[in-house]
Amino acid sequence: MDEKKEQIDNLTARLRDPATVRAAFGEMVAEYSRPLYWQIRRMVLNPDDADDLLQNTFMKAWNSLENFRGEAKLSTWLHKIAINEAISFLEKEKRRAGVSLDDPDGALAAGIAASPDLDGESLGAHLRQAVATLPDKQRLVFNMKYFDDMKYEEISEILGTTVGALKASYHLAVKKIEKYMERFDHGD
């Protein structure tokens, strides 16, 4: 763990050095593109949209690199940008589709649930369908906690929400998913 921290500190230092900033940024992309991609992909589901949003995330990071002062962790800063991109994209899609932003279980969730990614009768497919019915922000919290195994403190730093509110949000999401899954028989 210490070795990883040392590696990230070294990367952060090289991002501040004009002589190494471009190379260090390339290393940063290689290091973080995978977790950020899955984070975005779980939100938007469509692989092409996820690819575009991941590119936008790193372009924004490059264009505002001087704003990263190293006080926050590099991963926290990048996750914030990626999540903002994904949430903005989903809101734009809802507006484009004429879906009310106050309609958490509405047509968008139905549309997401109908994604080809979610075909199948396995536990995994049903789980993804259940997650797709959650409102965006609840889904985000659930994904970060359940799939990415992030600590509440880290999620709190990224989303700017209190740990208590996150715990409540996760608890509600779990209840909704369990209720959704009751209709299927997975031998549990």
């Binding site: 390339g26 992309v29 290689a30 593109s33 995978r34 977790p35 991609y37 899955w38 984070q39 992909r41 779980r42 692989p47 690819d51 991941l54 990614d117 536990l123 995994g124 497919a125 789980l127 993804r128 359940y146 799939f147 990415d148 195994d149 779990v174 998913i177 369990e178 899954m181 997975h186 549990d188």
Partner: peptide, 30 residues
């Protein structure tokens, strides 16, 4: 058991569970 615990035991609680990308996607992306 909670269905989410069952899913976790089946290895479904990972960032990429159930999702895929073309081979070499991350290398070519960088």
């Amino acid at each position: 058991p909670h269905i989410l615990e069952t899913a976790r035991k089946q290895g479904l609680a990972t960032p990429s569970a159930g999702l895929d990308v073309p081979d070499g996607y991350f290398d070519s992306f960088a």
